[in-house]
Amino acid sequence: MSEATLPDRATNLAAPAARPRTARRTGAEGPVVQLLLITVSLAFLLLFLLLPLISVFVEAGARGWAAYREAITEPDAVAAIRLTLLVAAIAVPFNVVVGIAAAWAIAKFEFTGKNLLISLIDLPFSVSPVISGLVYVLLFGAQGYLGPFLKANGIEIIFALPGLILATIFVTFPFVARELIPHMQALGSTDEEAALTLGASPWRVFFAITLPNVKWSLFYGILLCNARAMGEFGAVAVVSGKIRGLTNTMPLHVEILYNEYMGAAAFAVASLLAGLALVTLALKSLLEWRYGDAIAAARRH
């Protein structure tokens, strides 16, 4: 028995009863080819993914624990962390509400222009982050279309918190809707229709039926949305003005430190963001493993 049959045996392990036709003996490459392809893949990942990630933590610790703690607890860093959390705390819930509304409209109803609407929701994905920031500067900046009006009324958007929030909402706009729409479409509307015939009110239908059905995709969407919201750089860089302690988010703080040749401090703050990324990935994988099983179970019935 050659190495090549190993995956097939694993398949059979998962489904021991009477499904021999899932075994795929003929369709496997020789062990040498497999080893080669696996090596190529892992080398590629090492070079482009793993080394950068490791280097963040190595560089962050280069000056020792005291320097690391100093870098992430100095007032500007703390202010940046606070601001990042604040921006995400506003932008993410906004996108959750809009994403659920959009998914409800798109998945549960048929109307003209639906495909256009889906494309428009996805639009921010194909817009450069820098342009996402730029559009708000053109609109609300000192020389922007609404600049004079805002100035006359003492409202600050660009180089202030509202600008950061708007730019963040723009770049994370599609995340929640994108996860919810396919899931809700796949589930169909029969559950909701059943609940309505049983006399449930619309809001009760939504909270008791729809939301529990899609809770994992919703969580998944929120996870990705949050990761992007906290890590966004380009869009925020354009609208922030990078005023330390005021409009400086964590990614911007990293840039400033790096440009001031404070590499270790920059990597120290970066390591917090990398930690966030790892937590996001871990939760995401956990969800996929759980969620994947649930989907498989649903298919079996």
Binding site: P129, G234, V254
Partner: peptide, 10 residues
């Protein structure tokens, strides 16, 4: 998941 600025400096 990794913020682009972090990826950039790394």
């Amino acid at each position: 998941a990794l913020p682009t600025a972090v990826a950039g400096i790394a």
